[in-house]
């Protein structure tokens, strides 16, 4: 296991370096002179030169990149062009809402998706199965920026159960979490249904019944455990959706998370903030994938170390 972890960590490094290089290039080639923005409108030539040296912006690109990299490791991304605040602070404020939302969504999606999927497989061809098929079809085809206004209209405008938008108390989390969870739920339900019904057709299921186990015991001991690995892959892949969704859902509901902040940064041409959020998102993404890979091989030792499992 120790060897596996080291190997995976080492494999993640080139990916992270590639991503950091891309983000650095983006800032390097972005129009406008960062020095003028840091020094302020009224700065004279000498002051500008001082700032340029102070931030190392007179150095050749590869030195600047190394500097960018070491600063990024210390979570130091400079200051925002837009409101001159330290970016580390902006990012730290954004992490909590985004993480809370993502966590709620993934919990909701896993419980609901697994329940739906397993029920559908167990009662194949019956009403539950058909409902689950319709739900997953809707969850996959209705984009979240259509679902968001729809749910707001129903539950916030008409029924007034939840607030339209905002952030603060728990009640603000419900609608965005549901919107964010829709697609992963559908995805997980589909995976759970397929893998569980596949397992149910195996011979050892018949054997288990033959030796007198109850339906629940068969499900717990054989179906659930076998399907879990596939479902876990689904949960892992859902993090991609959560990431994409967080930009849309946070914008739609006015949640001051990382996604919302990066969209604002694009609109304000606030390059260092875009760099910081991109790098952070990418880092989280790579790390989550790494953790999942390790979890698979822990759960199923048949999965070998080489290459990606997908």
């Amino acid at each position: 296991m120790g060897r596996l972890i080291t190997q995976r960590l080492l494999l993640a490094i080139p990916t992270l370096l590639f991503i950091s290089l891309l983000t650095f290039c983006m800032g390097y080639f972005a129009p406008g002179d960062p020095v003028r923005i840091i020094a302020g409108e009224k700065a004279d030539d000498a002051a500008i030169e001082r700032v340029r040296q102070q931030y190392g912006l007179d150095q050749p690109p590869h030195i600047q990149y190394l500097r960018f990299l070491t600063n990024a490791l210390r979570l130091d991304f400079g200051i925002s062009y837009y409101n001159q605040r330290p970016i580390g602070q902006i990012v730290r404020e954004g992490i909590l809402p985004t993480a809370t939302l993502a966590l709620c969504a993934i919990l909701l999606a896993s419980t609901l998706g697994m329940t739906l999927g397993f029920l559908a497989a167990w009662y194949q061809g019956r009403a539950v199965d058909k409902i689950s098929i319709v739900v997953s079809l809707l969850g996959i085809t209705v984009p979240n920026f259509v679902l968001a206004p729809l749910l707001v209209y129903l539950f916030a405008v008409q029924l007034r159960w939840f607030p339209v938008a905002g952030w603060g108390q728990w009640i603000y989390i419900v609608l965005p979490a549901v919107v964010l969870a829709a697609r992963p739920t559908a995805f997980i339900a589909r995976l759970a249904r397929t893998s569980a019904s596949e397992t149910l057709g195996q011979e050892f299921i018949r054997t288990a019944y033959a030796k007198g186990l109850s339906g629940f015991q068969v499900f717990k001991g054989h179906v659930f455990r076998n399907a879990m690995l596939v479902v876990l892959t689904g949960i892992g892949n859902s993090f991609g959706f959560l990431l994409t969704g967080s930009f849309i859902v946070e914008t739609a509901f006015g949640i001051p998370g990382l996604g919302y902040k990066s969209v604002q940064a694009v609109l304000q041409r606030d390059y260092p903030v875009i760099q910081a959020t991109t790098l952070l998102f990418a880092f989280l993404f790579v790390m989550i994938n790494l953790l999942l890979d390790l979890t698979y091989s822990w759960l199923d030792p048949r999965i070998k170390v080489q290459g990606r499992t997908s």
Binding site: T15, F18, T23, M26, F247, V266, R269, T278, F285
Partner: peptide
């Protein structure tokens, strides 16, 4: 491979950051 490791929307936002909306 490296491109796949980078979530699509992030890359799109990064590029829109340079090119402008």
């Amino acid at each position: 491979d490296a491109m796949f490791a980078f979530p699509d929307i992030l890359l799109a936002i990064l590029i829109l950051g340079i090119s402008g909306p």
